[in-house]
Computed example of a mutant assay.
Amino acid sequence: MLTLSVNCPKCKKTLNVPTASAGATGSCPQCKHRVTVPPLEPVATQRQVATHSNQRPCKTISSGSATALPWLTAGLALIAVVLSIASLSSSFRSRPASLEGLDSSDVVTQLDAMKQIVDSHNQQLAGYKTIVKSNDSRIESFTNRLNALELQLGEIASNTSPQPAGDVEKLRADFESFRRFITYLRQTGAIASTRKTAVLDLATRNYVCVDVEQGTLLVSCQDAEPYLDGVRLRLHIGNPMAVDFSEYAVKLRWGNRFKGAYDDTASYVKWHDSLEEKSFSQTGTLKFAAWNVCTIVLPDTNPEDLGFLEAEVDVNTVSLSRNYPDEKQ
């Protein structure tokens, strides 16, 4: 959205207003001084909706329809993420869970195949980051529109002639709606830009990628059953790298599933603060090119209240073989 920068002659505040307001007069939201926007010949702009490579291109829409554009883009990105994870999960389940009994050439072949899957996922992640970057530009557009609404509200407040109450309330409702939507876009953008933590699917047992300093691990929750006063989890941690990891820790965050709207900031923060969080140190070894079983007990947890599970893995020690398997001592 094209904007004009106008300085208030009284308080010197810089106001960003849309080009459609050129020639209009309004009140400064800070000092209420009357500000006249310099006239400017309007320039028509259009914006092309970003689409996923597997979706039919959308029609070109004008900037006046930008209200629906971020919702459409966020929806396409979410569908693409779900399809990508489902495809990778199916591909990985078709591979052997362990490489015991294979010779060195078979191990290298299986390891290369696993790396190709991770590389493919990284390429798709780069595409999703491009969509998030596009959403950032739309956030800036919404911010400019908020500034224009502030200018209009100031004009209405300082105007001596009576204004219909319905128009004022509508402007205030639009203003608050834009603010909530910007908060929602920032939250979803922050989730999409990192893989250090990942939400585990307790229903489908699909794996998710979790980044560590040395590379990427694959984590899935295979089982969750009542145990004493808590819940016992059986996690599978896949190590597609060519090294072993020992003395690792699994940090979990768990609780009820969030049932509100993600643009309701107050409800989301309250739910997030109610989650339990604990780090579980493990003495086992994450063998390379294999799925490794990790058992963890969540204390004081009702199985019926376990609807959300987020995992993070921290590795401390890397182990490498001293000799190749076919090398003589």
Rank of each mutant, 00 (worst) to 15 (best):
M114F: 10
A68M: 14
K196C: 08
V243C: 05
D103V: 06
T73P: 00
A224V: 02
L171I: 10
S105R: 13
V219Y: 05
V318S: 05
A80P: 02
V132R: 02
D326S: 06
D201T: 09
A50W: 05
F245E: 00
A165C: 05
A311D: 01
T197D: 11
E150P: 04
S5Y: 07
Y207E: 15
K13P: 03
V208Q: 10
V49A: 10
P42I: 03
L78C: 09
T109L: 15
W271E: 05
Q30D: 15
A289Q: 03
V82M: 13
T301G: 04
K170E: 13
V210D: 01
D136P: 04
Q123W: 00
N323I: 07
F92I: 15
K270M: 01
M1T: 13
D106Y: 11
F92W: 08
Y324Q: 11
S321M: 07
D305S: 15
P96D: 14
P325N: 04
A192N: 13
E276R: 13
A311V: 15
Q46C: 11
Q152M: 09
S177W: 02
S137G: 10
V199P: 01
L320Q: 11
K133V: 04
G284M: 02
P18L: 02
S94P: 03
L252H: 04
T216Q: 04
D223K: 14
L200R: 02
Q152P: 01
C294T: 15
S21H: 09
N147E: 15
L78V: 06
N256A: 12
H272V: 07
V37K: 04
V269M: 04
N323A: 09
Q214Y: 08
G284W: 04
G230N: 05
Q30V: 15
F181T: 07
I131Y: 09
Q46F: 11
L252T: 03
S246P: 07
L306Q: 02
S62L: 07
D167M: 07
